[in-house]
Design a protein around this nucleic acid. Structure first.
Lengths: 364, 364
DNA sequence: TCCGCCGGTGTTATCGCTAACACTCTAGCC
DNA sequence: GGCTAGAGTGTTAGCGATAACACCGGCGGA
């Protein structure tokens, strides 16, 4: 059926073969360069020719070869997302946002996961995506591994970053355009203020592993405390991002009757705290208030329903993609501001905390 | 520095350019075909030549061009994962398993999400991945959209499928080798038996949207009931996979004092049921037992901790990849069997259910 | 001793497309 | 009327690799 190419199936059924640009050209009665112009939307093509070519394309079921395109132009129309744990809600949603935007733009999305934040793993991942011919890269810099990868990325690969807060303080101004991020500090501050306004003397903070030594959430939390004249307790750093670590730490933390409000680094941690409170016989929010971050879909159905900060992760992903492709655009893709969602897990500070721990004075 | 190619940066800094196979060849003093043989592990290359070529590769920082390879060989070393909702735990984990296996094999992973199970969306997605030159495809057939896409996939694209149960009953035997799946029926049966053995007269079932009219979980659940001589209640079909739909349905279902055990289609739904029980003043497991599916990381920290069926999703992903690439291998990648994890949400059947609904006789 | 096989290597022809340049023709200008 | 500008199209030369084939030498068997 088609004369060019090795696109035909190895055995028989020539109908399944793929048409090349030349087949289209001869069917349309133009040179194959004109076909190339049409599929690339070049301006200087007569309407008549464009029509003929498009008809031929439809007739033959022609599909441009990504490989040939990439080879001839020197760069693939693709973006690789570098991420460390794509099962976490925020990561998965961000990836989804990127994919959505990329799909609309006709650009392929590849993924590459970072095994850990160890130097060799980061280096291997960066090496795997550092070929500028393979297209652009978006780094999910929510954690240390991502932040390191981003730093290690060679300057000659087009890239942008999605992060929960701006990590490029020391970067030149021009580089800022490569970042999509939330104002994490203000979000944390608002959540803390919410608790303070409920009458809590202070707010304890269980943190997620940060990209930096002092995360921006921690900064906002501290700012709220200081400006309210509240004491600033030591930050708790459980192991990892998960529920288990926070649960374990909370089991110790909540024994202290002075602890009446806990701001957690994410919803999973908050769930661990809720469970720890339950284990200790404490009521939420009567004895202790809990706030999370992220607003995972299940958060509204926890018992009690979780007060948390909602992030527009999908929007973040779309914006990161947008920054990559249309840095010229007057306005990058819109991004909802983080918003505190008040549910059941926060309430007025208790006059006096109840629960069995009040009587349990055996712990130090 | 390098003489061939347009790989150099547009302006200056030739050191950043990319070496081509020819540069390597001349540096090693061999023909570029020999270089090709070395990077493709062809057998007939002398150890000496191989050594020289590898040295030159390291020296020049040579990296093969994926595009050129794909163009010349006719097929890209890539696999595209077709998935409908990559934020759900099982999907994300499976994707992670695929990525892990693909990374080890040096194969790129791309993703393409299915917007919905509407015919046009499915067709568009399938169209987007049906170019055999773009590499293989793995379909996540956990839902109707995935199952439809898999059916619509042309025979000439290499593909495999990951599913929660085997959907290819009517497929020819050879096609079965393309499937990675769990024995969902047995898993559901075991979970149901667990509840029956606790003394529950029957088990109600809240289902997730199935790929087929009668899901395999439903089949296993029914089998257990029938063989125990227990009545088979009508299956509840909430809207979607989420917590909200299950919560809403459970609010109605649990009003019936005869309902003492609920088997949910996934952990999110189970959370909705737990919350509904709480809303109705019912205790779990004293009044009603709840079982989920998936064992999401948070399940062990719900209040009460959820009894659920654990699935090895990452293993499923690895196996799906394995089936695609090494169908020759004597043994596909190992896959853990689904396993019931008993925690706090299941307990002996109540003699008589308590809770305010017992007195609330206003509902029909 | 001659032949043929085969390990090891080089040569040639594509793969399907884009980019740069060349060419033709018409319209608009002085 | 001659000239130029520019729209519209065709021609040519790669992009960086793979595959098929050709070639060359040494070895073992007849």
């Amino acid at each position: 059926m088609f004369v060019t190419g090795h696109n035909g199936p190895p055995d028989g059924d020539p109908a399944a073969a793929t048409a090349s640009i030349r087949d289209v050209a001869s069917a349309a009665g133009v040179s194959y360069q004109t076909v190339s112009r049409v599929i690339n939307n070049h301006p200087n093509v007569s309407e008549k020719a464009r029509q003929k070519v498009n008809d031929a394309i439809a007739l033959l079921g022609y599909r441009p070869s990504r490989a040939a395109r990439a080879l001839a132009s020197g760069v693939d129309r693709a973006v690789t997302v570098l991420t460390s744990n794509n099962s976490l809600f925020g990561y998965a949603e961000t990836l989804g946002g990127i994919e959505e935007a990329a799909r609309a733009a006709g650009i392929q999305v590849a993924i590459r996961v970072l095994e850990s934040d160890r130097a060799d793993d980061v280096a291997a991942a960066v090496e795997g995506v550092s070929d500028p011919r393979s297209g652009a890269v978006i780094v999910l810099a929510f954690d240390r591994a991502g932040a390191r990868a981003l730093r290690a990325l060679p300057a000659n690969v087009r890239s942008s970053a999605a992060a929960e807060s701006y990590l490029g303080r020391r970067a030149p101004a021009a580089d800022r355009d490569r970042w999509a991020w939330f104002d994490d500090t203000i979000a944390a501050e608002q959540a803390t203020v919410h608790l303070l306004e409920l009458g809590h003397k202070t707010v304890h903070h269980i943190a997620i592993p940060s990209t930096t030594n002092v995360g921006d959430r921690q900064r906002g939390w501290k700012r709220a405390l200081v400006s309210a004249g509240a004491p600033v307790p030591e930050v708790i750093h459980p192991h990892g991002w998960g529920t288990a670590g926070a649960h374990q730490e909370a089991l110790r933390l909540l024994r202290d009757p002075a602890v009446t409000a806990v701001l957690c680094g994410n919803d999973d941690q908050a769930l661990g705290v809720i469970r720890a409170a339950h284990d200790l016989g404490l009521r939420i929010p009567a004895d202790v208030s809990v706030v999370g971050f992220d607003d995972v879909p299940a958060a509204g159905f926890y018992t009690p329903a979780l007060t948390t900060v909602r992030f527009d992760f999908a929007g973040l992903g779309r914006r990161a993609f947008d920054l990559l492709m249309n840095s010229q655009a007057p306005e990058p893709a819109p991004l909802e501001k983080p918003a505190l969602v008040v549910r059941e897990s926060t309430g007025p500070a208790p006059l006096r905390r109840t629960g069995k721990t009040t009587s349990d004075k055996d712990d130090r």
